[in-house]
């Protein structure tokens, strides 16, 4: 309950943050809402020497309209994202998934970017970002760069973010009203992390499915897309949903823990994906 000692510095801009990280190197950690980091500090599972608090960096907060995209500041809290009018209008799936992150108190303080940058495959947001084909804007000592969600997650709790990088904002495509969505989060108690989650984004026209994007939570060391299912659904009639979703676990090697061995996780992925697709289609 008592973290090991560290220094603390609050920065007012992304540039300052990058500079501070550059100064302290590997021993520094970015602090935004703190809801992934502070629990690790309290249990002495992380020992940074410096925390760089970006929680008040204005350019990292809020949601803005950027033509065919929305841009979400990484330090925007879950609660702000969830209730944001632009998000609700153009990308309501985000609102829906974020409302299932943690609990109300966690959503009031935890940030959208933090939930992604932590790189926990059991978190709800990595699979969301992946299914949305989101783009991450990362500031580092070499300037800013865009990284596609599909390139961002490297391994368990590991992303492309380097020691001197700051995740500044997340760009997500606006989804038209022809997109339906549903997130099936499967856990044993409300507070727990997902044993498996399946997020379906489905674009429908004239009784068939134009396009489907499926994000899977906790089915590997990184968030995954159910590509085989997506391909089977693309341009197909709704009759094929069950067969297509039977392929949802293809290519996954899910972790094993007290709640689920791998075969059960794969089974859940298939069932939850089918349910998510059906619900996304308004079923």
């Amino acid at each position: 309950m008592i973290p090991a000692a560290f220094d603390y510095t609050r920065v007012g801009s992304v540039d300052e943050a990058v500079q501070a990280l550059g100064q302290h190197g590997e021993d520094a950690k970015v602090l935004a809402g703190g809801h992934s980091l502070i629990p690790l500090l309290r249990l002495r599972l992380a020992f940074p020497s410096v925390l760089v608090d970006v929680g008040r960096v204005d350019e990292m907060r809020g949601v803005r309209d950027d033509g065919d995209h929305l841009v979400i500041g990484a330090a925007t809290t879950h609660d702000e994202v969830m209730h944001d009018d632009l998000v609700r209008q153009h990308c309501p799936v985000i609102s829906d998934v974020v409302s299932q992150v943690g609990d109300p108190q966690v959503r009031h303080r935890g940030t959208f970017g933090g939930g992604i940058a932590h790189g926990d495959p059991a978190g709800d947001l990595p699979a969301l970002a992946l299914a949305l084909d989101a783009t991450f804007v990362i500031a580092g000592s070499g300037g800013r760069r865009d990284v596609a969600a599909s390139d961002f997650f490297v391994d368990y709790l590991q992303t492309v973010l380097g020691a001197e990088d700051v995740l500044v904002e997340i760009k997500v495509p606006k989804l038209g009203s022809d997109w339906g969505h549903n997130y099936q989060k499967f856990n044993r108690v409300a507070q727990a992390w997902a044993i498996v989650g399946s997020l379906a984004l489905v674009r429908r026209s004239d009784g068939s499915i134009d396009e489907a994007r499926i994000g899977l939570t906790h089915m590997g060391s990184v968030p995954l897309r159910a590509s085989a299912t997506e391909q089977a659904l693309a341009g197909a009639s709704t009759d094929v949903i069950a067969d297509a979703c039977d392929q949802a676990a293809e290519g996954t090697s899910p972790p094993e823990d007290l709640n689920a061995r791998a075969d059960y996780r794969q089974h859940l992925a298939r069932v939850l994906t089918r349910r998510a697709v059906e619900h996304a289609l308004g079923g």
């Binding site: 249990l43 044993r188 108690v189 409300a190």
Partner: peptide, 13 residues
Amino acid sequence: GSIVDYYVPGAPD
């Protein structure tokens, strides 16, 4: 080893 993994049920459960 912690209340994260030991499932004390909450109100929704």
